[in-house]
């Protein structure tokens, strides 16, 4: 199967799930039921940024599905794969938004789910100044708990913001690591669709700091490609849905590094079998250059630990 076929299949799967979920939600709540994420001025930020349209109720979602379907062209060209990636991301956003109906709190400690605008504004300045030199999006389960913890720690020590999706969240917890926005390790959620909450960060950064007009998808993709130093680490096994999400990440300019044997695309889709080299491979792929002055002290030292809270005992 060609890489594009895998992307298209993943996109079709997610679209089917989304369509069912939206229909079920409308059957349950009616088309006028309000939907949205808490603490954001950007409605469903990804959909808003790409199309310029705000989704306010379930009925709007039905219309959005038609718009998303129109992105799902099936020519054998990268543009079609990119747009399928974007369509997959938008579907994920709809699915995630449905979880928040009626003020529900679908995510519990340690997972964050949707991140409020305030968090993005707070992270925005260090991102622009380079204090946060990159954003790592880690997906799936590492081959072992030790490798998971070592990888996350390596990024943390470089001041990189780490977001976690799927099995690695449990692995990090098992290793006894502290997580949270204050230490720049943010577990998003266990479902693959929760990855949209970090995409939402990049997209809102473009809207807030990049002055990108909502609906100008080309400008959005150019801004994220040039200005948001994010990258994805996706652990094997990769299913078509993850690959379809990956196409969306690559469309935004974020390289994907994986330990699964798959197609390779220079600077974009890189196979690195050795997880201990994920860090170096990722930074080079995203052209992130960090100069570290090694201070020989017995504890970890990085700006990531600035917000750490020391509790009694």
């Amino acid at each position: 199967m060609t890489l594009f076929d895998v992307v298209f299949n993943g996109n079709d799967t997610v679209y089917g799930l989304t369509e069912n979920a939206v229909d079920a939600a409308i059957a349950q709540h009616g088309a006028d039921k309000a939907v949205g994420f808490p603490h954001t001025a950007y409605s469903l930020p990804c959909y808003y940024a790409v199309t310029g349209t705000k989704i306010e109720k379930l009925g709007d979602m039905k219309d959005a599905l038609a718009v998303i379907k129109s992105l799902m062209t099936r020519e054998k060209r990268l543009n079609d794969a990119f747009m399928s990636g974007v369509a997959t991301a938008l579907c994920a956003e709809l699915i995630e938004a449905l979880k928040y109906i009626d003020g529900a709190t679908p995510y519990e400690e340690p997972c964050y789910g949707h991140l409020a605008d305030a968090v993005i504004r707070e992270l925005g300045v260090p991102l622009v100044t380079g204090d946060i030199p990159g954003v790592a999006v880690i997906l799936g389960s590492a081959p072992s708990t030790e490798e998971a913890a070592a990888l996350v720690k390596s990024y943390q020590a470089q001041g990189i913001l780490v977001t976690l999706v799927g099995g690695i969240i449990d692995q990090v917890a098992e290793a006894g690591m502290k997580t949270g926005a204050n230490v720049r390790v943010i577990p998003l959620g266990k479902d693959v669709t929760s990855v949209i909450h970090v995409v939402s960060v990049a997209v809102r950064a473009a809207l807030i700091f990049g002055n990108v007009a909502p609906g100008d998808a080309a400008a959005l993709m150019e801004y994220t490609f040039k200005r948001v130093p994010a990258f994805v680490n996706a652990f094997a096994p990769l299913d078509p849905v993850i690959v379809a999400c990956g196409a969306g990440a690559i469309a935004l300019g974020f390289p994907v590094i994986t330990n699964e044997e798959t197609f390779r695309v220079p600077k974009s889709l890189i196979v690195q079998k050795d997880v201990s080299k994920f860090n170096a491979t990722s930074l080079e792929a995203r052209d992130i250059k960090i100069k570290i002055t090694n201070i020989d002290i017995p504890v970890a030292f990085a700006s990531a630990f600035e917000g750490e809270i020391i509790r009694r005992g």
Binding site: T2, L3, F4, K76, R77, L78, A81, F263, R264, V265, P266, K267, S268, L269, I270, V271, Q272, K277, A280, T281, E284, A285
Partner: peptide, 29 residues
């Protein structure tokens, strides 16, 4: 030019492989 898009952690340099990868994956037809 192709060496410039390799990743020193995984790729060898001095080959046409990056171009082949672009072609194989479909990025370039």
């Amino acid at each position: 030019v192709l060496d410039g898009v390799t990743n020193s952690q995984v790729d060898e340099t001095g080959t046409t492989k990056p171009l082949l990868e672009c072609i194989t994956s479909g990025v370039i037809r």
